[in-house]
Amino acid sequence: MSKRQHISAVVNGDPVDFLTDPGATLLDALRDDLGLTGSKEGCGSGDCGACSVILDGRLVCSCLVLAVEAEGRRVETIEGMADGSKLHPLQQKFLEHAALQCGFCTPGLLVAAKALLDVNPDPTESEARYWLAGNLCRCTGYDKVIRAVMDAAAELRQVRV
């Protein structure tokens, strides 16, 4: 067994420290070492997006990042999305539009959708669909997911002006 390494990072704005096997993924570290089980593992190979997090401002699959790579980096997960007990507009719109059924894909979709709206506040439906193509949802057929994202984008634009 390789020696565990000590990693310091910032997760959802808070400094964290953990020990990790060099072969472990960031998803493993989040879920098993930091107790942040909101990021899900649907495939472990980058294909489903359920593990989506934002790493230093970029949307990534945490199952395709080594935990040791997080040294000194900023990680944002679903657990950091709401402002305390106030839901992010995307979370609120997902609820209002019934954009989740089983909810397993939902954390990843929300994180990915937030990353989209951070760079493109006014996406077209097609842009939203392509941006989210790495987030598989088997329950909803995406219809309500896309509606929720578009509606949240509209609301966020309102807030901005």
Binding site: G46, G49, L55, R58, A112, W131, L132, A133, G134
Partner: peptide, 9 residues
């Protein structure tokens, strides 16, 4: 190449 997430890396 891949998804938005894959593009991040």
């Amino acid at each position: 190449i891949g998804s938005t997430q894959v593009q991040g890396r």
